[in-house]
């Protein structure tokens, strides 16, 4: 059989098959596979093309393609008519879900998770410290001896003279370093307490994340790089940051990182005190006194630490204007927060 006859034959068998498809006697997909599938009839034609005279090749090639297109378009038409004719589902798709709560994740969790994942990517592992701790871990070991003016910065709840509710997550540094040798690259989130009256801006407890990196030759420049990376990941790659000197007894040099928030609204003026800059976190190079407390050799190792307040960041990120909302449990508030 010549190629030309062969083409003709396939066309006529398809036409008769197609009638059965139209009557739904034959399945569309079956016919598709018979003609256009990998082992379909159309594919048997191409090897024959090789035997045709060179000057006729293009003519036959076109014939084969025409037939292929013919079959494909017929079957496509059929496909779409079958679908529309079958789709007789009649429901009110606008009806709500039959149970009204979709579930939610608390904004504090959302922020902690986001920060954890940003730092996890650059090798910080999460560890946890106790909420009830001693004066030693919370203050002394962090170079805040009794009667140090820095104690005024943190009003403390005491259980007795020595035992207290931690005022910051920085004590986790001490716990961890006492039990582990460098290199240390940790993140420690948790709840902390301050003996402060409850108001729109302050609450007697809040959450912090502490970060610590100790190894040989850790530099202030890496501290900056790490926290700028964080700011870019968290606030977007266009964020502007600045570092300015500050004071924490457990770091030297100490710094605070601000991000540029802008001055586009009245509330921007209020929260940035008219400067456009917003304090995001405190940080610094681990003070040699802290290394002494945990018996690390400060001639061999250096490191940096940082701490940030979760509530503050959550309030900024979501525009929450009253810290108490975070602990009230109002459903109308909570249901707005999802992953």
């Amino acid at each position: 059989m010549s190629l030309s006859e062969k083409i003709q034959e396939i066309k006529s068998t398809f036409d008769s098959d197609y009638k059965s498809v139209k009557n739904n006697q034959l399945d569309n997909q079956l016919i598709y596979n018979k003609y256009l599938g990998r082992k379909g009839l159309m594919n048997t034609l191409y090897p024959l093309l090789a035997e045709v005279d060179a000057n006729k090749k293009s003519e036959f090639g076109k014939k084969i393609n025409d037939l292929k297109n013919h079959i494909a378009s017929k079957l496509d038409d059929k496909q779409s008519t079958t679908n529309s004719s079958k789709n007789k589902l009649k429901v009110d798709l606008s009806l709500p879900k039959s149970y009204d709560s979709f579930g939610s994740i608390h904004p504090i969790t959302l922020i902690i998770d986001e920060i954890k994942s940003i730092f996890n990517r650059i090798g910080f592992s999460s560890v946890y410290g106790p909420e009830i701790d001693t004066d030693y871990y919370n203050f002394e070991a962090l170079n805040i001896p009794k009667h140090h003016p820095a104690r005024d910065m943190q009003d403390t709840f005491y259980i007795n003279d020595q035992v207290l509710l931690r005022t910051h997550t920085s004590g986790s540094q001490v716990h961890f370093m006492k039990n582990n040798e460098p290199p240390v690259r940790i993140l420690s989130p948790g709840r902390v307490y301050r003996n402060e009256d409850i108001s729109v801006r302050s609450y007697c407890l809040f959450h912090q994340i502490e970060g610590l990196y100790v190894d040989k030759n850790v530099t202030f420049s890496e501290l900056k790089g790490t926290l700028e990376y964080f700011a870019k990941e968290f606030f977007g790659s266009n964020v502007k940051t600045r570092f300015r000197p500050s004071y924490f007894p457990f770091t030297e040099p100490s710094a605070e990182m601000d991000v540029y928030w802008g001055l586009n609204s009245e509330s921007d003026y209020r929260i940035t005190k008219g400067t456009g800059w917003l304090e995001i976190l405190g940080c610094g190079m681990v003070d040699p006194e802290v290394f002494k407390s945990v018996e690390y050799d400060s001639d061999r190792y250096s490191g940096f630490a940082f701490g940030l307040g979760i509530e503050r960041i959550a309030m900024l990120k979501y525009g929450i204007d009253d810290i108490r909302l975070l602990y009230e449990g109002d459903f109308k508030f909570l249901e707005q927060f999802k992953k």
């Binding site: 650059i122 090798g123 592992s125 999460s126 560890v127 946890y128 290199p183 240390v184 690259r185 940790i186 990196y213 190894d215 530099t219 202030f220 420049s221 890496e222 900056k224 790089g225 790490t226 700028e228 990376y229 600045r242 570092f243 300015r244 000197p245 040099p253 710094a255």
Partner: peptide, 23 residues
């Protein structure tokens, strides 16, 4: 000036510092 100190973003860390999250 803290802002004049160049930021180093070539993060390097030892596998020995990686831990499993207990929570």
């Amino acid at each position: 000036g803290y802002d004049s100190i160049e930021s180093n973003m070539n993060f390097k860390f030892s596998i020995n510092s990686l831990l499993r999250d207990e929570n």
